[in-house]
Design a protein around this nucleic acid. Structure first.
Lengths: 325, 325
DNA sequence: CTGAAAGCGCTTACAG
DNA sequence: CTGAAAGCGCTTACAG
């Protein structure tokens, strides 16, 4: 910019004015525009933003960006971020609290204006200084532990309850529940929904019908096997997330008998399997959009009370959930 | 930092030294560390990087980050980027050249050290100034038009040729080819592979067996229908990407006769359909990793000639490609 | 209408 | 071993 000013024989501030579309005398402007073109100058936004005191950037911390739910969420966050003139930075934590902390630190050391986080388990009190310093922070999919912050969730409890109730209505009386470890908020909430549906249906809760572990192909398969072999055998299952649903499908693939299934979270081709898979669908794009919009509202001054927003899920019957006992 | 220095009663440079792990007298260090803690100071990396003349950041421009191939690629790029101490910025172009240009401009205005781009069609000569200015640039999945630059591709030609040859070996003599518009490099290359396989098999090329359009459910369905009804009818198909493969599966869903199918690009549950879908698999994670590694090699001074790297594809037989005519 | 000075928050290059 | 000055590339706040 200094070079451009020298070349055009003007002050550096006039170049800045032209670059920012402020008024300068037309003749002066012409000279400056020419100098810019000759030197191939382009303004260094990082420097401009440093002086202005913002970075016009948002950090998105996911558990795994390659997971379909999260990549769809990312696209929505990206769209809102770009529409607001900001840049999006992304990083995956791999469900590792130390790694999450590390990437969050990297983002806040760069002074991102805001953070959107799918929190790994464990306390998020380490974020308090950043939040106090004015970094807008929104949690998605799971609430943060130990701090009060804006949070966007789906209605895990209602969704699971309705899905299990759907199986009860079809006449099932022994319903297996396969999900991730209850340390994960969503898994715990879905378990609550499962229990609530059983209670409303007048059925006792039987721990032998519950398997909650970090997803592993073989363990899921043997849990299913065990539940199908006990007496009375499970005649239906509720799976707690897509990865587990797919493990479930692989596990029962070669059986003659088809237990009924309702799965939490929709997935590509769920309708193309035979039978089609009945799911409790959650809207990842809405979640991302709502989170990013709330973030930018905070950045433009909304200092209202912390929000916790629940997005509705919807039950989509496709066949697997309508198989009778 | 100035506040910390004042509080500790030292020069600002000593604070900088402590923050950067350089040597200062232990007593001095203790005082500074205490001041940092009391004031809750954290170094502003953006400011530090401005002075240092880099941004330790990479911009990744995709067509759509929610598409499985690209989100897997993103995760790999992210891993390499973070391992090199840089931050990853992402943006989707939606296959729109104007939008691509806009996000690339936004990234280079912030002086990213490098760019990884899945290029939308149209000339990329607009990047020449940035490349000349030292922005390391790697194209993935498709080559850039009009400029010489590092590029990572899969072997679209060989992969398609081998996939079609696989159908020929099963005895098919009329093979439909459904893909995206030939303006897209990968689609054009896969068409070349299709033609090559036919030629090697001694079969004439019949344009009536080719449908190349931006993916649209109904058009794909009617193209398939037309090819199945002509005489001699198509007995097998080669689909040019996952979106089209899924449209294909929906289109033939309710037919009694099952044409054979080999699909370019693998997808979740391809093995769980009946029959399983035979695919030409490409390795998105390797593509992302190789691209990012090449980028960082360039950033650390590798000024060797421009590279064009082809990654091998692999044919995975699962049933649909082995159906006889 | 335009520009010189100061400053954003750091680091570089020195001097002591 | 430590710090004052200059500078990264801009914008802010003024003065003229």
């Amino acid at each position: 910019m200094r070079d451009v000013a020298a070349r055009a024989g003007v002050g550096i501030k006039s170049v800045s004015r032209v670059v920012n579309g402020e008024y300068v005398r037309p003749e002066t402007e012409r000279v400056i525009v020419a100098a810019i073109a000759e030197l191939g100058f382009s303004r260094n936004d990082s420097a401009a933003l440093l002086r202005q005191g913002s970075t016009a950037s948002v950090g998105l911390v996911l558990e795994d960006i390659a997971e379909p739910f999260q990549s769809v969420l990312t696209r929505a966050v990206e769209a809102v971020t770009l529409a607001n003139g900001s840049i999006l930075m992304t990083a995956s934590s791999g469900e590792d609290p130390a790694r999450e902390k590390q990437v969050v630190r990297a983002f806040s050391a760069r002074r991102v204006d805001g953070l959107i986080i799918v929190p790994a388990a464990h306390s998020h009190r380490y974020l308090l200084p950043d939040i106090k310093a004015g970094v807008a922070t929104v949690f998605v999919d799971r609430p943060a532990d130990g701090i009060d912050a804006d949070t966007i969730l789906v209605d895990n409890f209602d969704g699971a309850r309705d899905g299990v109730a759907h199986l009860l209505r079809a006449g099932h009386r022994a319903i297996g529940f396969i999900a991730d470890t209850p340390e994960i908020f969503t898994a715990a909430e879905r378990l609550r929904g499962y229990r609530e549906a059983l209670a409303k249906g007048g059925l006792p809760f039987d721990p032998a019908l519950v398997h909650m572990q970090p997803p592993a192909e073989e363990e899921v398969a043997s849990a299913i096997d065990r539940m199908l072999k006990r007496s009375p055998p499970a005649t239906a299952f509720f799976t707690g997330n897509s990865r587990i649903t797919i493990m479930f499908l692989r596990a029962i693939r070669n059986r003659r008998d088809r237990p009924a299934l309702v799965a939490f979270d929709d997935f590509e081709l769920a309708d193309m399997l035979r039978p089609g898979i009945t799911v409790v669908a959650q809207d990842a794009a809405s979640m991302g959009r709502v989170a990013a919009e709330l973030l930018f509202r905070r950045l433009s001054g909304d200092a209202g009370p912390t929000q916790r927003i629940y997005l509705r899920t919807s039950l989509i019957p496709r066949g697997s959930g309508e198989i009778p006992p």
